[in-house]
């Protein structure tokens, strides 16, 4: 007898992913600026396969941005000091004005680069693999990935007051792939990340047994 209803592989993968997230008490995240994004809508990465589903998109916890936001605030307010302490008095007035303009140009560059570094250095967990996207400088980027089935060991580390209060830490994933270790640094809810990875490993093993390997 022919099957009356057969769901498409993409729909099946999505519902499986939703179930995994449900088990750890998470659901689809709407905020694009979040550091812990579950089932991100409309997000794709360069090497993503057609039927591959992103389950988690992780960035460093937002509190790790505090230091550059603090520096940026000081940079924005610094020219106000000139009203009290005339540090640029030795310059002609036109050079004084140019100095302040250039200062704000550098401030904009600093804020933008810091934001880009946080926003685009991401860790992605799909139903098939783990991807680590690193932008270390203007021209250098490194994308390392490992298949879920090649994951051998997962550990996570939290410690210190700040990490305990804001619930973030590092996840270390040992693999049998080309990149022997992939580290997720300062990601939110590391315990949930580990649980998702563990469930994906179990799911991958089940798929192997059932002969559903892609």
């Amino acid at each position: 007898m022919p099957d009356i209803f057969v769901s498409s592989p993409k729909k099946r993968i999505k519902s499986e992913s939703e179930q995994i997230l449900k088990r750890i008490g998470e659901s689809e995240t709407k905020n694009p600026l979040a550091a812990f994004v579950a089932l991100p809508k409309g997000v794709q990465f360069e090497t993503q396969e057609k039927e591959e589903q992103i389950i988690l998109l992780l960035r460093r916890h937002w509190i790790t941005n505090f230091h550059w936001i603090f520096i940026a605030l000081i940079m924005i307010l610094a020219p106000l000091i000139l009203n009290v302490v005339p540090l640029l008095e030795f310059m002609p007035p036109r050079f004084q004005l140019m100095t302040v303009i250039i200062w704000y140009l550098l401030t904009l560059a600093f804020v933008f680069e810091s934001f880009l570094s946080w926003f685009f250095n991401v860790y992605i967990i799909t139903d098939e693999r783990i991807v680590d996207v690193d932008f270390t400088s203007l021209t250098y980027r490194r994308i390392s990935d490992a298949q879920i089935e090649r994951v051998q060991d997962i550990t996570y580390k939290t410690g210190g007051l700040l990490r305990a209060v804001f619930d973030y830490g590092d996840v270390f994933i040992q693999t049998a792939g080309k990149s022997p270790e992939i580290d997720f640094e300062s990601v939110p809810k590391p315990d949930k990340v580990v649980r998702v990875l563990n469930q994906l490993i179990i799911q991958e093993q089940q798929e192997k047994i059932e002969g559903r390997v892609r």
């Binding site: 600026l33 360069e46 933008f112 991401v122």
Partner: peptide, 21 residues
């Protein structure tokens, strides 16, 4: 020149992670 490189860098970043923002 640096500012232009930033524009190119952003293009590369947006190609790597497409979708939001």
């Amino acid at each position: 020149v640096f500012a232009f490189m930033v524009v190119r860098e952003v293009d590369a970043m947006l190609n790597t992670l497409k979708g939001v923002f």
